[in-house]
């Protein structure tokens, strides 16, 4: 006996409310299993409500089902970490390091030619860029909290704190440089270090964008 759309919605709600299943891939797979079990019981003459109760019991009830989701999360997160590491490795190669070093030298040479206030304002802007990218990612992923992408967000959020720390350290560098007697030299060195660190952080933040674009559906195709 085939279930109606309303009955399927009822079973979906059971999974979401009673077992806190929130990720779409797990939810869809368990819904199919739950629905098939329910149909089997209905074929023996049970009503939908009664059959779904039996099916819920067969399915291992809330706790057993949650373990499936926990296992799924651990599995996907491991895949995310592996993939992210591959992306990061592909970014951090000699061309990236050479470009960063050259940009650092360029900043060192250009800073004396720009008024100090502008340099400080520009540095703050540069320092905040990688964090801004991660915050943007966080906002974007909040729009799809039930997809596998939400797990990418969790990874990005963990690293955002490291970026915030880097921003604070860089800011302290800037503050200590202001008012110093050899201000110009300090500012040159601090600007160079800040830009180099921020370029590396920027690459790291961009690696999350690539991770997000891949959408983690590479193992699954919709027929």
């Amino acid at each position: 006996m085939l279930l109606t759309t309303d009955q399927l919605t009822y079973l979906r709600t059971d999974l979401q409310r009673l077992a806190d299943i929130k990720y779409d891939p797990v939810l869809n797979e368990l819904l199919d299993h739950y629905a098939t079990l329910t149909e089997q019981h209905m074929d023996t003459g049970m009503s939908f409500k009664e059959a779904s109760k039996w099916a819920w019991n067969d399915l291992g009830q809330g706790e057993g089902i949650q373990k499936i989701q926990d296992d799924y999360i651990a599995n996907v997160q491991q895949q995310i970490r592996c993939r992210h590491l591959t992306i990061v490795k592909s970014y951090f190669r000699w061309p990236a390091f050479l470009t960063t070093a050259l940009v650092g030298v360029l900043v060192y040479l250009v800073v004396p030619l720009i008024p100090t206030d502008y340099v400080i304002a520009l540095l703050y802007l540069i320092v905040l860029t990688p964090t801004a990218i991660l915050l943007w990612l966080e906002r974007k992923l909040r729009q799809e909290p039930t997809s596998q992408q939400a797990l990418v967000f969790e990874n990005a959020a963990k690293h955002r704190n490291q970026h915030v720390n880097a921003v604070i350290i860089s800011s302290n560098f800037l503050i200590t440089s202001i008012g110093n007697e050899s201000r110009q030299t300090f500012l040159q060195v601090h600007s160079m270090i800040t830009v180099v660190v921020c370029m590396l952080l920027l690459l790291y933040a961009i690696s999350f964008i690539q991770l997000l674009k891949e959408r983690f559906d590479f193992r699954t195709t919709i027929a």
């Binding site: 399927l8 368990l30 629905a35 799924y72 599995n75 193992r219 699954t220 195709t221």
Partner: peptide, 30 residues
């Protein structure tokens, strides 16, 4: 189910299984 699905997901992550989702009887079947 608590033993089956983690085992299936693990085999999939190891690259031994591949999946395909198809809509059957109004629901997605993997």
């Amino acid at each position: 189910e608590g033993a089956l699905y983690p085992a299936l997901h693990k085999l999939e992550a190891e690259g031994l299984l591949t999946t395909e989702t198809q809509v059957v009887d109004g629901r997605a079947r993997k």
